[in-house]
Structure formats: structure tokens, C-alpha cells
Design a protein around this nucleic acid. Structure first.
Length: 560
RNA sequence: AGCCCCGUGGUGUAGUGGCAACAUUUUGGCCUUUGGAGCCAACGUCGGCGGUUCAAAUCCGCCCGGGGCUGCCA
């Protein structure tokens, strides 16, 4: 079942220490707080597994909370997709589904408290002016001329902001902290902006919306979160997180930052993913080439495989980039144990078995050699079959063990066959004439003779046609964002999607439902795509099997 | 340039004063009715310098390198 926790990451060490010192009366309460402005990706999966995983491990709780403080970018569609994805990954927030927008009234009251304490003020400066006066990395900022308004004036102005008396962008509420602070985030950060936009949750009730720094700590505080885990880019915001909570004198969770996940050959930012979707460079958020949860689901990745991956990559504070191959390894490992096996031929080559009768028979096939409990099935066998074009070569090189003229191989679960003749049309091999040995039924030779290889096949008259979509890396380079000057869009892999028609698969595949995962023996893991209709089967290749022959070939030289 | 964070095999992560470890990758081999899976083996690492100590990846100092921060985004 669950892997033993090999070692403790720095976050769990902090939690252990807090438990030991009774800092939160033994409670552990985390949260996963996505902004509903895009679909979740594998990087979010890391965070989800971390937060929900910690809650499970410590007998605590983890909330799902939508950090919906910017109606300009957020949509209900994203809310629904996030709910679907977190559930699919296998996590349960029970009755704790929250929205930051549910706290807007409370946040507003807190803001008035801060104004009354003289710790916040209404500023009439424009956005440009505020930026100007903020100073730079090396130069201190300058106080706004509106910084020293009286508490009464600030309170009145802030109330009028809320009441909608001022146009968008004309005023903001700012915390009064320190314009000389070396941390730019502390130079009187904006708490509220005036923004007339319809919110997916609160509609048109508000025309002022809280900023992240002001809102997030309050959300955590209101929910009595103990450990507020976020990514590294918020490290410089922690002093502000702490300042707001201290200024208010309210319950104070602890913010802890960890490094976000990066994967090779892809991009992991909602902004960039949105662009790929909007520019039609991929076919939507659930395009199987994308590192989105929905894309991976559609591609055939399993939740448990993703969870194992998240566990194995660990949690730390170093910026890093994980090999895409490692994700694939975790997925394969899981699918190897769980996916039923079928036979399917992607690029069919007709085989006629000359000495086989016109009648048909069935052979027994094991559904999963890794799991006898998955049973077996019967597969139709007949005189005319399809095998993979790659499994035959006219001029076989030294390490090629498969079919060639005069050579004998095993058809998996069926018979030994020997290639007797090659039929060509326009110089292209279009059919193999073979004979079979009736004594080798099931694939064993009674005389004990061996064959060098076993290949897969499909009975021609029983085969089901399928469209198969093969996926390759989305980008041609390991780190698309680290190519100086190059627009990442020019680095897209033109071969990231290859579509094959009239592939031949064994009839049992027809019983599969959309998103069902299985292995085509010797080829890889596949799943049924949601584009499938009753008359048109569409399959996605999740990932290939490890390909030793392919490795030998590419070592010998580039493919023809 | 100011502030903050981080440097352990190709990649990711352990090790926090006592023999540098695990996974993956790569390369060999074994096994095999999937050239799959599995098994065995090999390659390969503490950013640098100095200090403390019987002993340093670990503690201290300096340096070097990488990342983040100047939205009314999160």
C-alpha cells in the first residue's frame, strides 16, 4: 500500500516541533487555496498531495479554499474543474469547501479596525504614482501626500469607497507601514482596490476587492489553519502576512514556503498554459499533451501514479526541475500492476497463414501477468491476421529478433509461425505469407525448440478499427523558459501529436469505457479518449513501454 | 545595487559532528510466451577557500554560483 515515509521533509519537521511544543494544542490544519483562474496542473498536484497528505498523516484536516479575490480573472468553470481534479486525485475535504469571498464582510470589518488603529489610510494616488513613490530595490520610497489623513477622514473615505462613490482605480486603501523598508512589500502595500466586476460568487455586491497579501492571512486565520503552506515566491510576503495578523491581534497561523515543481519539456504556469489554450496551440485545458491534471487524466495517467510521484519528488526549498521521465516511470509502475492487457496493432501488416483452415478458433490470454486475480480472456484467431509493420524486416540487422523471411517467431498466446514469402506492391511490403505449426498451440513447442521473439497480433476479421493518438513531448527543449531570448512558442514540438487511423485492436477493447486504462502488449499504455462515439473508437497513448530495441536502434544511428 | 532564500551523483531527495544513502537515468549482465515487468552489477556526488574539532556535507567566517522581490495579480 502506502510507501513507508523514507524521511521527513522540512515542513513535517516543523510540524513535529510545533506538536512537541504544543503550539497549536495538538492541531494540524492545512489548506489548499487555488485561485480559480485556470485549470490545475501537476505542480498543484504536488501541493495538494502535500497539504492533504499532511492532514491525513497527522490526523488533522485540510480545507479546499478558493482564493477568489480578483473577479477580473476568475470564473465558475475553473471552480468546477478544480473540484473535479482534487476529487479525482483522491482527496476529500469533507464539509470544508470554502471561498475567500465568503469572508469579504469579515475582511472589510477588519480593514475598518486597521483604519481606526491608524494603521491604514485611503490614498488618492494613481497606480503609476504609487509605483513611482514606492522607490526601487536600492532607493527608499516616498510617503504619499495622503498618508497623514485623519482617522475619521480615512474611515469616511473607505466607507464611501465601499459604497461605490468613487470610480474604479481612483482610490485604494493602504497599510501604513514603512516606506523605507528594504522589503518592497512592506512599503505601504495596497489592501483594497476599487474594481467593478461581477464576481462569480458574490455577483455585484462589492466594488472593492481585497488584495492577496491582506486577504490570505485573514482567510487562514478565520479557518484556524495551523500551517499555511505556499510556494517560494511568497517568502518575501511573509513579513507582511505576519504584520497584518499582528496588527489585528487575531489568530496567527504560520506560513511556510516550499519550492514549486518544475518538469522538463513542459511549462508549468497558468499564464503560459492559458496562452497555449487561447492561441489554439493545444486543443483545450485537457489536451493530453499538457501537464494539467485534466490533461493527464485524459491521457491515461492514474491518480495513484501521480500521488506516488508527488511523494517521491519530496519537498524542499531548492529550485529544481524534475525529469519528465521520472513522472513516466511512476505512471508505468502503477499501470503495470493495474492495467489489463490487450493486443492492438498500430501500423498493420497483413499476414496470411497458408496452412491454417478457413475456420476460426479462440486462444486463452492472461489479462495481467502481474496480477493473476485479473483472470484471462479468449481471443479470436484465424487465417488472416495483422501484425505490426515494425515486427518484420526484409534485411534484419544483427540484434533484430523478430520476423524475417524464413524465420520462426511466436504469436503471443497462439502459435509459432514461419515467414515463407513476402508480397510487395510498389516495392513496399504489403503482406506476409506464413505457415504455422499446429503443435505449438498456446505458444509452446512440444519438442522444446525456442524462438527468439514473441510478437503481438490481431485477427483481421475480428479486429476493431480505432483512431490512435500518439503523444510526444510538448517542447523540443528541456527547459523552454531558459532559452535566452527564444519565444517559448517557437520551441513547441511539431510532433507532439501524431494521429493514426485504422489501427486494429482486439474485440475486447470495445467493452472499455472512456478513460479506461489498459496496456497494448509490447506497445505501451493506452486509454479510451472521451471523443469516442459508438461508431468511432479513439484511443490515447499514455506512455510507451520501456523500449530496449528502440534504444539499440537509436544507438546505431538515427531512424530512417 | 538593497532585502530574502537556496547550493549533496545527469535528475530529484535523505543524511544536521563519527564509513555519504535512496530513487530515477545511463551502461553491462541474468531472466522472460510483452525486447514489458522483475533481478544483479557498474558508472557517478557534498560549489570554493579558511577556521573550530580527535573527527565537518553537518558548526563558524569569507567568497563564488543560482533563484525571488520595484501589479490597484495570486
Amino acid at each position: 500500500m502506502a510507501e513507508p515515509q523514507a524521511s521527513k521533509d522540512f515542513i513535517r519537521e516543523i510540524i513535529d516541533a510545533d506538536l512537541a511544543s504544543n503550539k497549536y494544542q495538538g492541531r494540524v490544519h492545512t489548506r489548499f487555496p487555488p485561485e480559480p483562474n485556470g485549470y490545475l496542473h501537476i505542480g498543484h498536484a504536488k501541493s495538494i498531495c502535500l497539504n492533504f497528505g499532511i492532514a491525513e498523516q497527522y490526523n488533522g484536516k485540510c480545507n479546499l479554499r478558493f482564493d477568489d479575490t480578483n473577479p477580473a480573472k476568475e470564473e465558475e468553470e475553473y471552480v468546477q474543474s478544480i473540484i473535479t481534479d482534487v476529487k479525482w486525485l483522491g482527496f476529500d475535504w469533507q464539509d470544508r469547501l470554502f471561498y475567500a469571498s465568503d469572508y469579504f464582510d469579515q475582511m472589510y470589518t477588519y480593514a475598518e479596525d486597521l483604519v481606526k488603529k491608524g494603521k491604514a489610510y485611503v490614498d488618492d494616488l494613481t497606480a503609476d504614482q504609487i509605483a513611482e513613490l514606492r522607490g526601487t530595490l536600492t532607493n527608499p520610497g516616498t510617503k504619499s501626500p495622503y498618508r497623514d489623513r485623519s482617522i475619521d477622514e480615512n474611515l469616511s473615505l473607505f466607507r464611501r469607497m465601499k459604497a461605490g462613490e468613487f470610480p474604479d482605480g481612483s482610490k485604494v486603501l493602504r497599510a501604513k507601514i514603512d516606506m523605507n523598508h528594504p522589503n518592497l512589500n512592506m512599503r505601504d502595500p495596497v489592501m483594497y482596490r476599487i474594481l467593478r466586476a461581477t464576481h462569480h460568487n458574490t455577483g455585484d455586491k462589492w466594488c472593492i476587492y481585497p488584495m492577496y497579501d491582506w486577504a490570505h492571512g485573514l482567510e487562514d486565520s478565520i479557518e484556524h489553519i495551523t500551517h499555511s503552506i505556499c510556494t517560494l515566491e511568497f517568502e518575501n510576503h511573509r513579513p507582511l502576512y505576519d504584520w497584518f495578523l499582528d496588527a489585528l491581534g487575531v489568530y496567527h497561523p504560520q506560513q511556510i514556503e516550499f519550492a514549486r515543481l518544475n518538469l522538463t519539456f513542459t511549462v508549468m504556469s497558468k499564464r503560459l498554459l492559458l496562452q497555449l489554450v487561447n492561441d489554439g496551440l493545444v486543443k483545450g485545458w485537457d489536451d493530453p499533451r499538457l501537464p494539467t491534471i485534466s490533461g493527464m487524466r485524459r491521457r491515461g495517467y492514474s491518480p495513484s501514479g501521480i500521488r506516488t510521484f508527488a511523494k517521491r519528488i519530496g519537498v524542499a526549498k531548492v529550485n529544481s526541475i524534475v525529469d519528465f521521465e521520472f513522472l513516466e516511470y511512476c505512471i508505468r509502475e502503477d499501470l503495470n500492476k493495474t492495467a489489463p492487457r490487450y493486443m492492438g496493432v498500430l501500423r498493420p501488416l497483413k499476414v496470411t497463414i497458408e496452412n491454417y483452415p478457413e475456420t476460426k478458433e479462440e486462444v486463452d490470454a492472461v489479462n495481467n501477468p502481474e496480477d493473476p486475480g485479473m483472470g484471462s480472456r479468449r481471443i479470436p484467431f484465424s487465417k488472416t491476421l495483422y501484425i505490426e509493420q515494425d515486427d518484420f524486416m526484409e534485411q534484419p540487422p544483427p540484434k533484430f529478433y523478430r520476423l524475417a523471411l524464413g524465420r520462426e517467431v511466436r504469436l503471443r498466446y497462439a502459435y509459432f509461425i514461419t515467414c515463407r514469402d513476402v508480397v510487395k506492391r510498389d516495392g513496399k511490403v504489403v503482406e506476409l505469407r506464413c505457415t504455422y505449426d499446429p503443435a505449438t498451440k498456446g505458444g509452446y513447442a512440444p519438442d522444446g525448440r525456442k524462438v527468439k521473439s514473441t510478437i503481438h497480433w490481431v485477427s483481421a476479421s475480428d479486429a476493431v478499427d480505432a483512431e490512435v493518438r500518439l503523444y510526444n513531448k510538448l517542447f523540443t527543449v528541456r527547459d523552454p523558459l531558459d532559452q535566452k531570448g527564444a519565444d517559448y512558442k517557437t520551441l513547441l514540438n511539431p510532433q507532439s501529436l501524431e494521429i493514426l487511423q485504422q489501427c486494429k485492436v482486439e474485440p475486447a477493447v470495445k467493452t472499455c469505457k472512456p478513460l479506461d486504462r489498459f496496456q497494448f502488449e509490447r506497445l505501451g499504455y493506452f486509454c479510451v479518449d472521451t471523443d469516442t462515439t459508438p461508431g468511432h473508437l479513439v484511443l490515447n497513448r499514455t506512455t510507451e513501454l520501456r523500449d530496449t530495441w528502440g534504444k539499440i536502434q537509436s544507438a546505431a544511428g538515427p531512424k530512417p
